[in-house]
Design a protein around this nucleic acid. Structure first.
Length: 299
DNA sequence: TTCCAGGTGGCAT
DNA sequence: ATGCCACATGGA
């Protein structure tokens, strides 16, 4: 499918389509990637630090090649190929949405290069517990504080140190005082309680949820402290490959009211709409909508 | 000063 | 099952 090769500690992947780093990293699904002055991004996932650059073709700015600096073929195959969801054909998904729904077609033009990342389940769980009633810049600060305080130093890139997200075992042994300087507010209690549950069975149940049905995963996630329907859907979408998950937050309420004239408080109607019109890829549709409304706010 | 942010837990109906 | 409200924190 792709032409992949390794050269000077870089992995180059040619033949990429439907890809844009700003769309991917700025659509609210992840919190730890940093944009460099050359428009590449540096980040850490699954305890590996890399820099990723995208070189578009001259014809189409969403097609081109990826350059992974600080990586190798084996990590590409085991981690990054899935992390960036490179095996999925987003052209077909976008085409199907656009043909059925001219409103969605417009939203898609803003976020054409979005890809749903497959992130670490545990990190995603805690990250989205932190996200509740919070804003994205502050969520990023909270997560970074947890990593630098309790994670392992994994790598250095251009003088910046990168720390891993600490395991459930590590967090489960902390107290609220240990976490106080991360300014998690009332969420620190939720995090410690959830960490104890997850660490208690060595993350076995959480990790098995990737293969479980959406209903089963939802039921387990809702049993955790600090996880409600919105957070559970984010975890299923951004770390478990359950693409029909449809997280509804204040922004999605806003955009669905604006574009589809559904009352902001009527989330059940929004879910119904998503299921009917976007089906198995509802979560991807949701990301186009989320990115679209937030871009509109900025303009 | 008040309002808001990728909401949820707890409690009262 | 549904409706309220408190909850920490910092930026606008």
């Amino acid at each position: 499918m792709y032409n992949v090769y390794e050269k000077d500690k870089k992995v180059i992947v040619e033949g990429i389509k439907d890809f844009n780093l700003d769309h991917i990293f700025d659509c609210g699904q992840c919190f730890r990637w940093i944009k460099e002055s050359d428009d590449s991004y540096t980040g850490i996932a699954f305890e590996k630090t890399i820099n990723i650059a995208f070189i578009p073709d001259s014809k189409n700015s969403f097609q081109g090649k990826i350059i992974l600096t600080g990586s190798n073929i084996s990590d590409y195959e085991n981690i990054w190929k899935n992390y960036f969801d490179l095996e999925r054909d987003y052209s077909n998904i976008k085409k199907a949405f656009s043909e059925k729904d001219s409103t969605m077609a417009k939203a898609i033009t803003y976020g054409q290069g979005i890809r749903i990342l497959q992130q670490d389940k545990w990190e995603t769980l805690i990250s989205f517990i932190i996200s509740q009633n919070n804003n994205i810049p502050r969520i990023k600060k909270c997560i970074e504080c947890i990593c630098t305080s309790f994670g392992k130093k994994v790598g250095v890139f251009q003088g910046r140190e990168f720390y891993s997200f600490p395991s459930a075992e590590v967090l489960s042994k902390l107290t609220q005082e240990d976490l106080a300087h991360c300014k998690l507010g009332y969420r620190s209690k939720y995090i410690l309680e959830t960490a104890k549950i997850i660490a208690n069975d060595n993350s076995i149940t959480l990790n098995s949820m990737g293969d479980a049905s959406k209903d089963e995963a939802m039921k387990f996630l809702l049993s955790l402290c600090g996880v409600g329907p919105k957070v559970a859907n984010c975890i299923m979408l951004f770390s478990m490959g359950k693409y029909d998950s449809f997280p509804i937050d204040v922004w999605v309420k806003r955009v669905m009211n604006k574009l589809y004239d559904i009352k902001e408080e009527n989330t059940s109607e929004m879910l119904k709409y998503a299921e009917k019109h976007f089906g198995q890829y509802g979560g991807i549709a949701q990301q186009y909508l989320f990115y679209y409304i937030r871009q509109c706010e900025k303009m």
